[in-house]
Design a protein around this nucleic acid. Sequence first.
DNA 1: TAAGGTAGAGAACGCCCGTTCTCGACGCAA
DNA 2: TTGCGTCGAGAACGGGCGTTCTCTACCTTA
Lengths: 215, 215
Amino acid sequence: MPAPLTEEQNRRAREDLLDAAERLFYERGIQAVGMDQVRAASDLPLKRIYRLFPTKEDLVVAMLRRRDRRWRESLTVSVEQVADPRARVLAVFDWLAGWFAEPGFRGCAWINAHGELGSSSPAVLAEVRSHKRAFRAQLAEWALAAGVPAAADAVFLLAEGAVVTAGIAGDPAPARQARSAAAALLAQQGGVQQCGVQQGGETTDPSGSAPASIS
Amino acid sequence: MPAPLTEEQNRRAREDLLDAAERLFYERGIQAVGMDQVRAASDLPLKRIYRLFPTKEDLVVAMLRRRDRRWRESLTVSVEQVADPRARVLAVFDWLAGWFAEPGFRGCAWINAHGELGSSSPAVLAEVRSHKRAFRAQLAEWALAAGVPAAADAVFLLAEGAVVTAGIAGDPAPARQARSAAAALLAQQGGVQQCGVQQGGETTDPSGSAPASIS
DNA sequence: TAAGGTAGAGAACGCCCGTTCTCGACGCAA
DNA sequence: TTGCGTCGAGAACGGGCGTTCTCTACCTTA
């Protein structure tokens, strides 16, 4: 191998490295994982790691950025399979329920990173804020399309509260609770045909975390 | 001073120590603050610190526990000055708004601690869960008294989302947004006289932070 | 085949961590 | 006054951190 590395080799190494870093940092926390553990998990020489990312902070930021891209893409793909604009907003919570139920779920990687490094690393703080802004903007777009632009803030706060609570309690139930609250708000804010009666879909909320009716 | 320390001296030292630890840990993060910095800030010999709390983890747990007691007491005192049970639930968000606007506000100490140590320290995790359970239970009690027990989950999730969001964005606005959403849910869930019109109490909002409309 | 240069393995560096230990200073009972 | 025992100050300890450096092995080019 001594002979310059190909672009492709570097690209692959970068992905492997980010894979290992993302898994370890999310599982155990960023400060709790040393660069040597990242090296062992990625099976890459330390020298190459530092050529790809000059500091640990750079690695953390790159990891958060890639995760943000994938996270929002997964959400969007899932939610936009739902045709009805109103149901789309609620589908966000079904997607959250699926996420919460994943084996290694440990809350929001960005909120966790903020708790660890928000006060000491401006770069990480900026990345966290950027992610939250993007998520909120996406929700606002869907709320607008559903004719309930004023509900965007509440939907965002309910989603954030659900993620935090599910992460701490280790229980996916908050997704359902947040969904119910969002459904009630949507029924109220959008034009409702009959007083005090919700449109169909919200009250039929089957057991498991992802109801059949909407998603 | 060589001659056993008074009970009173130990009590005072313990409080001073917890004061210093709470301030430093909240400002900069727990892992980012070394015991030597705690020693310097508390102006106590390291030996005495370790006699009061055998490990850093013990100090962290004690700090979180004392903060929990004070935090919930402050909330309760503030909220229970409001007479109307329905308005009480909304007063939670007014109290949050005041908290968010405090100079050093940096989000929820328990959520931050969870992000840092939740996966490595069972004692800290238990303390965080205990705090969240207690907060939720208090909200459920107020929701029940207001005749809207079903709103407890939503109020809790809105509050959690507001705390996290305000902490990350460094902006107290989420308190207002969460309050509005809660007001809408309360108006809907409790018996409402006229369709789409809220009962009195939610819209008349003392002090600063809560607008009249839903937005 | 010889020279040059980059790769990898991992030791080394300086620093800081949580925790313990040493040691001189001092208050109190006899 | 003489010990005894606890105190405070801070050095010491073992280990882990992020990062850099050394050194050998090998491929590539001439």
